[in-house]
Design a protein around this nucleic acid. Structure first.
Lengths: 368, 368
DNA sequence: GCGGATTTGTTGTATGGATGAACTTATATC
DNA sequence: GATATAAGTTCATCCATACAACAAATCCGC
């Protein structure tokens, strides 16, 4: 996309676009490629692309059985990725956060030594985070409750410089998914993040729909199967979460989820039941928020072909608008650790949305 | 609110605000009140208010047992309101729309004769409307399906001049409710419209959350009570809709809903069960979209004190974020026929959002 | 191989919406 | 009545963008 194309698609003049591009180049947010003499007559256009490895954001994640840090640049490249596998069920928050901060500190210093500007950091957590700064209210599968993550991480000097944005794991993963799907215009979908817990997020035109506190999309806790009375009835997570699935299939909880696909009759029944439960919960979601696409992420990504038909049957039967909606059920397209890269991407997107603020801030810190 | 206050709260200078106010006054969108010598020293401020009876929008509605037309001006006054009661269950679309058009035509000509500018019209329908122009896909309780409302109404010359925006009854009612609640900043809530059907809408910061087609909020069709299997299970509307409620209470369907409040033991049980069903469905809504307030409208407005405790019990038990959310369950505050006035209000809000476009359009039509 | 057509990017000058400071108007207070 | 205070207006200035002309780099036809 050249200056002239930008001008044509935005309605600004080429002169204006040139001036703006000048600033972005100076800020190292974009770069020029070699002009490629096309088939058309006229002076060849200078293609503009996101800059490579000049400005990065750090994405971090603490999840049930791993923690990790990655960096991504404006071009979406991942110059660094560090993962530590461990079991954090019922863990002590302090030491876990210290390990993360340690890892993140190493990554940040490595990058700044290479002259790369670190624009910001983000941390994905499997629970309810109160705004992007607030405490982690509840992370059921870690066993954490009311943890002031930001205050703890600020004790580490490197992270105090770039205090992380906190976000829900599923919400940030959905951002990564939205990025992966944004070819041909922004996407709208419901993202289902299947892990030990089941999270979710609603994306409209490429933007997360967070709600008042940012706690939208908790589809794992939608009530199902009330058995005729309204007093009982389990939630989706208890029926279709990773542990529930493996238990129902008679497999050990340490088994790979892929084992379900040729796990015999019990596994088949477990998958059918999980798909029905997912379909029922998703029918509620789609009656409430009108989107046309369900994206299955986490453990469901690999199971998507197996689950989709039964999910679709529930949706077709129960979603009022189904006859006029081109409902789609798809496997997630974002890579491994989408929450981590999604968080980093959110930071970079904020810069892309308001490059002026970043340029100003950059000059200020240069002046110090 | 004076020019100086506007300047202070927007960050613009008083000079700029004065210039803009000048235009709005010329367009008759706002008016000046008498300066009131306050307690403060200094020149008294000239209060500015929405103009009265100079620019109006027409709100129309076709519902199951009435149709109507009203006009409201920028100040929210209702200079005209015309209602016709009738039963439109399983009606023929054509004649019903003709009756509405007839009524609307009279209202419009009356107003224009008085020198009032009609900014636009809106029509509320109890069903799925495909965008604000598109056909009415489905109105279950009217028995209408795929009706091209706009084309039919355009056959009436007066309405062809001001083609209506089409909208879902619950969505437009929620707009009226948002307007009634916008004191002290925009409101976020889930609106439940209890009628023969149960509609709903999600409002975030005063804006309807429509989704891809504008079909969000169909909570009447959320599935409940699956009896252990996922194949069966009714929807909320069948359990807590007006007809279901009256049937369960052993009352005739023509009875007033208020009769339930002292309808004996059967009515009590029916109300309990409806409240539980509403609570369960709303728990799904609140897990999926994070808002803190549920507004009960339609028939539920009058029943709110009776229903709220049981609804709240369900929400507290089932909404993951309930412990950190100040959940409120309230009766609707908008007046009678909220969908009608909400539609009209939506038209006026569009003008308030972009007064320049209206001023331009006004000058154009004056030039003709 | 060279002039014309074509498209890109840049360099001016012009303009419209907002700013900021000074000014006028209208009140309260001492 | 003098002074302080606040509201609204006037006017010179600024800044981002538009507009127009130009330079640069390619393709095309003869």
């Amino acid at each position: 996309m050249s200056r002239a194309e930008v001008a044509a698609s935005t309605g600004l003049t080429r002169a204006t676009v040139s001036a703006l591009v000048e600033q972005l180049l100076a800020a190292r947010l974009i770069r020029e490629l070699e002009p490629v003499a096309g088939q058309r007559a006229g002076r060849p256009a200078v293609p503009l692309t996101a800059a490579l490895d000049t400005v990065v954001a750090i994405g971090m994640e603490i999840n049930v059985d791993y923690l990790g840090v990655c960096a991504i640049d404006m071009a979406g490249q991942v110059p660094v990725e560090r993962i530590v596998h461990d079991d954090f069920r019922r863990s002590e928050p302090g030491p876990v956060m210290d390990r993360l901060a340690q890892l993140a500190g190493e990554v940040v210093t490595t990058l700044t030594d290479r002259g790369v500007a670190v624009a910001g950091t983000a941390l994905a957590l499997p629970g309810l985070v109160d705004s992007i700064t607030g405490p982690l209210r509840l992370a059921p599968n870690l066993g954490w409750r009311d943890v002031d993550v930001l205050a703890h991480l600020a004790r580490h000097p490197v992270l105090a410089q770039v205090p992380p944005w906190l976000g829900n794991e599923a919400n940030l993963a959905a951002i990564a998914e939205a990025r992966a799907r944004r070819v041909g215009g922004p996407a709208s979908f419901v993202y289902v993040s299947g892990e030990v817990g089941i999270g979710g997020a609603i994306v409209l035109d490429g933007t997360i729909f967070g709600g008042v506190h940012g706690w939208s999309g908790e589809i794992g806790h939608v009530a199902l199967g009330t058995e005729g009375s309204f007093d009982r009835g389990g939630q989706l997570e208890e029926l279709a979460g990773q542990d529930a699935l493996l238990d129902a299939a008679g497999l050990p909880r340490t088994a790979a989820v892929a084992a379900l696909l040729d796990g015999g009759e019990r596994a088949e029944r477990a998958l059918d039941r999980a798909a029905d439960a997912l379909g029922l919960a998703l029918s509620a979601v789609l009656n409430i928020v009108d989107v046309e696409c369900v994206v299955l992420g986490g453990i469901y990504a690999g199971l998507a072909p197996r689950l989709a038909p039964r999910i679709r049957a529930q949706l077709d039967a129960r979603v009022l608008s189904a006859p006029w909606s081109a409902l789609r059920i798809e496997a997630a397209a974002a890579g491994r650790f989408p929450a981590m890269s999604g968080g980093a991407w959110a930071v970079l997107e904020a810069i892309a949305d308001d490059p002026e603020a970043w340029v100003r801030g950059d000059e200020e810190s240069a002046a110090l």
